[in-house]
Write a protein that binds this DNA or RNA. Structure first.
Lengths: 238, 238
DNA sequence: GGCTAATATTTGTATAGTTGTATAGGTCAT
DNA sequence: ATGACCTATACAACTATACAAATATTAGCC
């Protein structure tokens, strides 16, 4: 005589809690065991409800950690003068960057070509994570010509902003020369960082930034969580 | 939904980094904490990956120091005319020797017998470490008849090479009379020197070198890191 | 300079908690 | 009978935290 399945009513109740801001973006929900006790059902029934909500992008679970309220989609522009900080702030969210790794090594073939370096020239590689309101938006890996910017590593350690760090190294302004966008599937590592499932869709952009004289200063690859970001292309006066 | 366990993909990524020489033999990897941040997982997950790589002999951890890329297996010949320096250089690696202790004392029973000395005769004992590309390959303890070579201690201090030191003491050439090989387990001291785990397998060789007249000039015991060295037996024309 | 002691860093180990997955079975409406 | 729904149990994978043990680094002292 159960018109509505238990799991469905549980999902509705939790969805209402989120809609009424009882749980906010990034918050951890009670554990599955706690929810099961609270609703007086088996843990699997709660899981069924959470699975439905996850499929709708409302929540996301991290094994071993808990279930969290997912971030709302972010609009992200692509154009000649894109600055992550400004773009996110313009959308009313708080931007942040997390440094994952900073390493100097020999350039690989693509990096050397994009930056107009000789094979084997050193590049400074900056792996990081872009956040909006604490939610991960994008993974990125930027390569810079290490010989031209010997102080960039220190600058990036202080201010994780690429724009500010380059400014300290004498590049007052830079613009995006090329951008290519492709679709990929998240591998395990990317999925963890972006808090999405392995195999979930990802937007990958490959870009080269140049200074005022046209010299390439940054070769950047960025991976966006596909269902959390919408890339918008500005009119580019080529 | 994790097709591939996280730790496995992390181990693969790090293994690839080593294979592409981004981390070289003897290099220290980033700390577990840094790797955990870089891959966006808990430290224990990184440890699981490192444990797998350590089990394969790819890396080795030293508590309090870090995780290091293990040396690649070195081929080491056993035969009548073995010279450490030449053997390692022939393999394309850079040989070195580290002096641990140099001491003159009364010979014990085995040393006396091997060197054809009277009980209680003095022997010069040379404890050292053999390195290839900076990675420890073998621990050794060599005993020489002190009365026959009064200047050997000074010579060994200058040039840590046994061959060169003996040459200065009038032994232009020597050959290996006997070699015995056994397997042991590393004790704590050996493990520290060889940068392996306590209880790891060790190859021990016991050898007597004789001069052109057949007089024994060196009684040497050597402990090789079992998983880092392959002993190859040359055809010995007795 | 060299030695010692204190401090900080790094790996090793232990414990507890959380989500993911698999298996087995039971209830009920159609 | 069949399939959707729900319970029960167990284990694997991962997180979180804390502390111990070994090492590296630094400061101070002679």
């Amino acid at each position: 005589m159960t018109r509505t399945p238990l799991w469905k009513s549980i999902a509705l109740a939790l969805t209402a809690d989120i809609a009424e801001d009882r749980y906010r973006t990034g918050d951890q929900l009670p554990t599955e065991a706690q929810l099961a006790a609270k609703f007086g059902v088996n843990r699997h029934t709660v899981r069924r409800a959470l699975a439905e909500m996850a499929a709708q992008g409302l929540v996301h679970a991290r094994r071993g950690a808990g279930v969290f309220v997912a971030a709302r989609p972010t609009d992200y522009p692509i154009g000649r003068r894109v600055r992550f900080h400004q773009s996110v702030a313009a959308g009313g969210q708080t931007p942040a960057k997390q440094l994952l790794a900073l390493d100097t090594r020999a350039a690989d073939a693509r990096e050397a070509e994009a930056l107009a370096l000789a094979p084997g020239d050193p590049v400074l590689v900056y792996d990081g994570l872009s956040l909006a309101d604490g939610a991960p938006i994008a993974l990125f890996r930027s390569a810079f010509p290490a010989r031209r910017f010997p102080d960039l590593e220190a600058a990036l350690t202080k201010t994780r902003s690429v724009t500010q760090a380059l400014a300290r190294c004498g590049v007052a302004d830079y613009t995006r020369a090329t951008t290519r966008v492709t679709a990929k599937l998240a591998n395990a590592t990317q999925a963890v960082h972006l808090r999405i499932a392995e195999g979930a869709p990802i937007l990958r952009t490959v870009a080269v930034n140049v200074d005022a004289t046209g010299q390439p200063v940054e070769y950047g690859r960025t991976w966006f969580a596909g269902d959390r970001v919408t890339l918008t292309v500005e009119g580019e006066g080529g």
